[in-house]
Design a protein around this nucleic acid. Sequence first.
RNA 1: GUGACCGUAGCUCAGGUGGUUAGAGCGCCAGGUUGUGGCCCUGGAGGUCGGGGGUUCAAGUCCCCUCGGUCACCCCA
Length: 428
Amino acid sequence: MKGTFQTIEGTSDLLPGARRPLVRTEVWRHVEHVIHKVMHRHGFAEIRTPVLEPTGLVARSIGQFTDIVSKEMFTFERGDTSYVLRPELTAPIMRAYLQHHMEQKPGVQRLYYIGPCFRAERPQKGRYRQFHQFGAEIIGTNDPRADAEVIAVMMDVYRTLELTDTRLRINTLGNAETRPRYREALVKHLTPHTEALTKISRERLSRNPLRILDTKVEAERVLLEDAPSLLDYTDEDSRMSYEALKGLLQSLEISFMEDPMLVRGLDYYTQTAFELEHAGIGAQSALAGGGRYDLLAPAIGASRPVPAVGFAAGIERLILAMESSDLWLPEEDSFDVWMVALGETAGREAFLLLQTLRAAGLRVGMELAHRSMKAQMRLANRACARQVVIVADRELEAEVATVKDMGTGDQSTVPLAGLADNLIKKLN
RNA sequence: GUGACCGUAGCUCAGGUGGUUAGAGCGCCAGGUUGUGGCCCUGGAGGUCGGGGGUUCAAGUCCCCUCGGUCACCCCA
């Protein structure tokens, strides 16, 4: 396909009837519908924010030294403003919360979102330059019940889609004071062993030492065995909140495993952190991740902390997981009725009839190019039409239509006047 | 940013050691039924073999460059 344009690297068109579920619009509509339904059921309200945000918002919230900010942002300048295509949605939502003084609204705010995000990484399975996230946030309380509620609504989305072969890992990261202290202790522990670390981990030691905790290298795992534990450095509040969360999850029968090595990549996380994994989506095993981010609001300019907890989930990864778990994924929708017309005048009449039947609430299709009856019947069959309405001069003279049941093959003659009612009766 | 692998019809893929007009299945279109689908049969359309350069009498096949894709690393949804 040269000479014409194509989608840019790491982006894709979603098409009706596509072979791969990942790019089939029917699948996306189904998934999105379930997300809206579950969120609504849990009392979360939808928020939509612009795809374009000020670069500073992202840089200050996520952290200067994270990979996202240092190398994965799509940014551009225009005039004296720097814009960024949002790489995630938590910061924009906190921005909106602050901008619109949502703390003035009654009670805690339960918000959910769904939409595209952008990161300038090299694409691979489960990772794309334009990808789609959904997520939920509870803003305005540090009650551990909020942490549990966010996890509960997240799990309900997957459960409703019947994706149950997942694994939930949780941890607590401590608060604004204890996290840096732990970081120091870890660096102190590992520094004598610098020689034994991989090149990558050596870099992480200075940049983002907590990330070494989830290394896959066996030799490094050994080194970490007698490393200081995050939990030992955690403050009393965090620990109590963590215990409360675990109790709530148990009572809700949401199974989880504690993972003291679990850390999150973004700077604004404190206390609760969690991740949901699935084995069937390639190297990018995380379906969703989240946690508490009480530090985010001050980081983007709020005069005081705003307690908040939430999760973000990848829709592409969700669809890949459903595919690998052999879950039902919708195909193209069938038609109630297909109009078949022969000749000029009949073609015009059939078109008017088509609109009438649609107005009566039926899903009706029709070919517009002039084609043989056989060809039109083939199209009706491919559209999985249940009934076919045939109109030609012969029928028009008698003011009737021939109706064919595509399941049984039976045909009948029906007066045009009562056509819609007759079809509705047949379809029930 | 780094690495590996792949790039032949709309799709999935065949095309030993380079050798006449590049193939199949599915899909698409038409016909077999001058007004009837699914199955079957027949025929047809559709390819600058990703692009450029080179080696050669001769390149889809060998070499170089380039573009695109896939997967992986880093990191993350």
